[in-house]
């Protein structure tokens, strides 16, 4: 058992945390840029920021390309048509659970969420199933889970997934129980939805799809990653630890709520928020507070709410946003309280 866990921790250090890369960049900063790395003088801080920036950019970009390729290949098997067919036979908690789970592997870009929502509703899927799928799909995905593991370890990553899926199931069940069907925009029910044949993608198509995904996500995301790493580097070496601890640390009882207020309206990519989260945790922010921030950024944003308004009336939209907001704040508190168990 001991050897197994040692084996995994080596794999984790070499491939996910890339500790060797961190050491290498430290060497480069020390010997080529001739800068010290410390928190005491200005050159040490510049050196530290530089080390964080170079190391984190390379790490995230390398992991991102690799992970997106692998997971896009796996996920290409789960087409929305197939998901709809599987889910259409279920209802209640069973349906909500499967909906939430399939939401984690069914890939789609955010602009597809409306067509998928409409076709689920038109196919007669119960509310709890549709909504647990809708909540879990932007929240939890395979690539961000592995990236999370590379920064905070597997315990945090797995807990994040489990909690995210549970929130999706619970949110879906509440919306289902409230019988809110009448608050879906009326035109959705009048819409004609055509049928397409369910074609199993070939291996070649799946590889091509995976390559495309890497390219697409890359062109879309690199700005956010560099920006995120830049902000992370600033927090890492220039913002005093006491300040971060005071505002976002566990001493401040409102920290998760604050994180939600900042995170929810913001639109950014999860990969861009991770370096910020990493730096914040190093500076003493509670892990729950950071997770609330990250979940807020990925699950909801002003653009996504505007988009959802096309298919939901205000009441339903309000309940949807309310459940997610309360959910992620509660998750923040739970993680902060049980921090000692998972770090």
């Amino acid at each position: 058992m001991q050897y197994v866990s040692q084996f995994f921790s080596i794999i984790n250090d070499v491939f996910l945390k890339m500790t060797w890369l961190s050491d290498l960049i430290t060497w480069v900063v020390n010997n080529i840029f001739r800068l010290p790395i410390n928190d005491t003088d200005i050159w040490g801080r510049i050196g530290g920021s530089l080390q964080f920036f170079i190391y984190d950019s390379i790490k995230i970009i390398a992991l991102l390309s690799f992970l997106i390729f692998i997971f896009a290949y796996i996920e290409s098997k789960f087409t929305p048509e197939k998901t709809r067919r599987i889910l259409s036979k279920l209802k209640g908690i069973k349906g909500a659970t499967l909906g939430a789970l399939l939401g984690t592997v069914t890939p789609f870009c955010s602009c597809s969420s409306i067509p998928i929502f409409i076709s689920f509703v038109k196919a007669g899927l119960p509310m709890e199933v549709t909504f647990s799928f809708l909540i879990s799909s932007p929240f939890v995905d395979l690539a961000s889970t592995v990236l999370l593991a590379s920064m905070f370890g597997w315990k945090v990553a797995i807990t994040y997934v489990v909690v995210g899926v549970l929130l999706a199931i619970l949110g879906g069940m509440i919306i289902g129980k409230l019988k809110l069907e009448k608050y879906i925009q009326d035109y959705v029910f009048d819409m004609k939805v055509g049928e397409t044949e369910e074609v199993e993608p070939t291996k070649k198509e799946r590889i091509q799809y995976a390559k495309e995904q890497v390219k697409n996500i890359f062109t879309k995301v690199w700005k956010y990653v560099l920006l995120g790493v830049g902000i992370g580097a600033l927090i890492h070496n220039w913002i005093p630890q006491e300040l971060v601890e005071k505002v976002l640390g566990n001493g401040n009882i409102f920290a998760p709520i604050l994180a939600a207020i900042v995170g929810i309206p913001m639109y950014a990519d999860i990969f861009g928020t991770m370096p910020i989260a990493e730096a914040l945790v190093l500076k003493g922010t509670g892990i729950g507070t950071v997770l609330t921030f990250m979940m807020g950024v990925t699950a909801l944003s002003v653009p996504s709410i505007v988009m959802l308004k096309q298919v939901m009336k205000n009441k339903l939209l309000g309940i949807f946003v309310g459940i997610i907001s309360v959910g992620i704040i509660v998750i923040g508190y739970i993680f902060n309280i049980f921090q000692f168990l998972i770090i």
């Binding site: 929305p80 048509e81 409306i114 067509p115 939805v193």
Partner: peptide
């Protein structure tokens, strides 16, 4: 137009 796209049964654009 979303309505037209849905008529084709397309969920992924």
């Amino acid at each position: 137009d979303m309505a037209k796209i849905m008529e084709y049964g397309v969920m992924r654009t």
